[in-house]
Structure formats: structure tokens, C-alpha cells
Write a protein that binds this DNA or RNA. Structure first.
Lengths: 227, 227
DNA sequence: ATTAGAAACTAACGCTAGTTAGTAAGAAAG
DNA sequence: CTTTCTTACTAACTAGCGTTAGTTTCTAAT
């Protein structure tokens, strides 16, 4: 197993190594890139091993099999995003129960994902596959986040415009905009003069999507509404 | 090839067949479902053949290889959507140059995709893979559609709210909302009491996304805007 | 210096992928 | 009825997949 030997317990480095000090991390990096680019079925262990610069069987010194490697990639990639969202929702933990700022949240997530563009693609692939590997990662997070988020949103101005059953669809619409910015960039490139994944494109998109949320949280002024 | 023999030319059915009259169509149906569910790499010819009820090599009587089958599925699936969009943009061809109704367009596309839920998933998979199979299908369509769309949009009230460089990102945001409704439904299901792919969910979403577009095409009334 | 353990390697396995060759059977054309 | 052509089939091949066994090499603790 992956447990550290009990032994002296004083040693700063728990286990012995050979060539490179952090092979497991480098494997995760390579796997994240390939799983995000080609999906699970489209990624071969040869792809990953070649990228790391080791032989295929050496992967098994760090992960028991391909599926476990995939799970590890998913968890390592998603955890920080969930933490980021939690912080944004519950107001940094030190300043609790303050009206959240959706605009700032969108911007922060966009900028985080821009640093790891494989991640949104990985998430999209995972959801297309049914999200069964994602569910256990979200199960502990989703319910409290939803509760806090809903409680917080009641104090956020503008939400009274929408009915409560519509909120999940609105949240997912925003989710799809942000994730989609990275997953459909191939198409965006043929429409927009600004490359969507360039620093300028990310900046413009973050700003735009922020405005978009803002626009959705305003009362409808002119147009008549049937109900 | 697939050309009909020239011969009598009166015969309603161009070629001879054996068991089932439209095997090629049934193969396309099965392939669309599997490619949409599992992606290209995740779909095996065994999957498709089993679903049709024939043996694997029989597939090669209708399509030269897996890649060609995939292309055929993509083309068959996407063409009607492009036609639908063209009609919506250029106002049904008989009533040209009329201000388009984005709300109605969103609704129409949503309802079309709801009948073929594999299709948006297929498109998402394709874009994740780089969209190289999609490009030739769009190349003849995209430029005239964009031109007409932009021309039409100048007469659509509300667009002056956004800068022209922002329009592609806004269009893609809407695209991502619609496509994402189907590709991220696994996640939506754990948030929304209404199943997103149920008839009720589609109806509610179509209405909501329509409202959303409407909201984006209105002037910002209260909140101050930096520039 | 010796030992123990981690982590790399080579070699090989079973399995399944996509694909091809060759054959049989049924429908359409003469 | 005979011929031709389409479309299904069985059998088989090659290549590549994920995985395991066994060996070597280097590091770190005794």
C-alpha cells in the first residue's frame, strides 16, 4: 500500500527515491494533461509514461492501475476549485454571512482555471461519462455548499427576480458558461478575433461573464412579463 | 461506392437489399447513440454492431471504417441544426431581413436537441477533441451565418448594450448554456428537483434561457457601469 | 560496510481493438 | 431460369492495450 513505514518518524522525507524526487506528481501532471485533452478512453498509459520520461510499468510503482490514476488526477484537480468556491460562498470564513459577490467569484474561478486549462476539459469529459467518479468528491461538498449558497443568496440583491426552482438551472447555466469557455474554445477561435485562451481572452471573458451575472441579477425594467 | 446503378431509373428502390431495408440508417442511429454517450475512443464497433443486431464486419458493407462512420454520424446530426439556425437567423427565407427573435431560436434549438439528446453530447465530445471533424461542416455555413447574423443583430433591439468584440463571447456563452444543459445534466440532477432532461425540465429550461437572453438584451438601469 | 526497501527496468502475458479475405444466401435484372 | 449484385456471414490477422512477474540499481538507514 501507500502507507509510510512507521520507523523513526523524525525523518523529513518519509520514503526513499531514485531518479527524480516527485515522480508521482509528475505522473499526475502528465495524466491530467492527457486525460483533459483526450479523455479517459483516449489516453494510453504510453502517452503518460512517455510524457514523464519513464517506462509504462514504472507507473505501477505509484498508482495501482489506470482507473486509480484517473481518480487521483480528478481529486487533485477538483479539490482546490471546491475550496475556492467554498471560500467565495461563505465569505472567507473570517467574515461570515456576508452577501456574496458572484462577479468576483466568476472572475476568481476563471483565473484559476486559466492556469490549468486541462481541468475544465477533464470535468467536462467526466460529466459526459456520467460523473460517477465525480460524485464521491462532490457528495461531502455539495450539500453544505448549496445550503450556505442558498442562505447567502437570499441576502444577495437581485435574486428575487428568479423563482427558486429556477436557481439550480441558473447556477448550472453559469457553470456551463465558465467550463464551456475552455471546452468549446476550438469553436470560439473561429468566431472571435480575441483568442479565448489567451491572457487577454481570459481577462475579457471573466469581465464579460461578470457583467452577465450582474445583468441577470437586476430587475427587468421595460419588457412586459407574462407571469 | 454508394452510387445507384444507372439502369432503368424507374425503380423506386435503387439497390438490392437483404434483411432490413435501411441498415445504414440503423447503423447511424446506433453509432450516434454510442458516440454521443461514450465518445469516439470509448465506442467500439462491437457496441454499434450489437445494437444494430449484426456482426462487426457487416458494418464495413456500409462504411469504409470507424472514422468514416463517425464523420457520417456527425454530418447527419449537425446538418439539420445548422439548417434550423439558418432559418431562424435569416427569418425563414420568405420574410427576409426581419429582426430575429433570439428567444424563439433558443426554444426551437432546445426542443430539437431534446429529441436527439445524443447530439449535443456528440458535439461537445467533438469540440473537446479539437473540432477537426466539425470544421469542414461549419466552414461553408459559419461565415454567411455570421454575416447575416451580425447584420440582423444590428436591427435587434438591445445589442447596443454590448461591444462588438464581446458578441462572439456572448454567442458562445449562449451556445454553452444550451449544449451544456445536455452535457452536464448528470450534475444538474443532483441540484435540481426537476430532472433536466425530462419534458418538464426541457420546457422550463427553454423558457428560462429565453428569459435570460431577454435580460441580456436590456439596458442596464440602476447599477453604475465603469465604462 | 552491510542491509532493506523503493523505484526503475526488461520481458512477456492475455485480451480486445479495428480491419481484411473469402464465402454463402437472398433479391433484382435479364 | 439464370445471372449478377448486394449484403450478410465466419475465420483470421495485426497491433496495441492494460497489466504482471521478475530483475537490477540506487538511496538511506543500521
Amino acid at each position: 500500500m501507500t502507507e509510510a513505514p512507521i520507523s523513526t518518524q523524525d525523518t523529513p522525507q518519509p520514503a526513499a527515491r531514485r531518479r527524480s524526487p516527485d515522480t508521482a506528481e509528475r505522473i499526475l501532471d502528465a495524466a491530467e494533461e492527457y486525460f483533459g485533452r483526450k479523455g479517459y478512453a483516449g489516453t494510453t498509459l504510453r502517452d503518460v509514461a512517455d510524457q514523464v520520461g519513464i517506462r509504462i510499468p514504472s507507473l505501477y510503482n505509484h498508482f495501482p492501475n489506470k482507473a486509480a490514476l484517473y481518480s487521483a488526477v480528478l481529486e487533485r484537480g477538483i479539490s482546490p476549485v471546491l475550496a475556492l468556491l467554498s471560500r467565495s460562498i461563505q465569505g472567507d470564513e473570517t467574515e461570515p454571512t456576508e452577501a456574496m459577490d458572484p462577479k468576483a467569484t466568476v472572475r476568481a474561478v476563471m483565473q484559476w482555471l486559466a492556469l490549468r486549462p486541462s481541468l475544465p476539459r477533464l470535468i467536462q469529459y467526466e460529466l459526459l461519462a456520467g460523473g460517477e467518479q465525480l460524485a464521491p468528491l462532490l457528495s461531502d461538498w455539495l450539500e453544505p455548499a448549496m445550503n450556505q449558497g442558498l442562505a447567502m443568496m437570499e441576502t444577495t440583491p437581485g435574486v428575487e427576480r428568479w423563482r427558486s426552482q429556477e436557481i439550480p438551472f441558473l447556477v448550472m447555466a453559469l457553470f456551463n458558461i465558465v467550463i464551456g469557455h475552455f471546452t468549446t474554445s476550438a469553436l470560439t477561435q473561429s468566431l472571435s478575433p480575441t483568442p479565448p485562451l489567451s491572457e487577454e481572452g481570459i481577462e475579457a471573458a471573466a469581465h464579460l461573464y461578470g457583467q452577465l451575472v450582474e445583468a441577470l441579477l437586476q430587475d427587468a425594467p421595460t419588457s412586459p412579463r407574462p407571469y
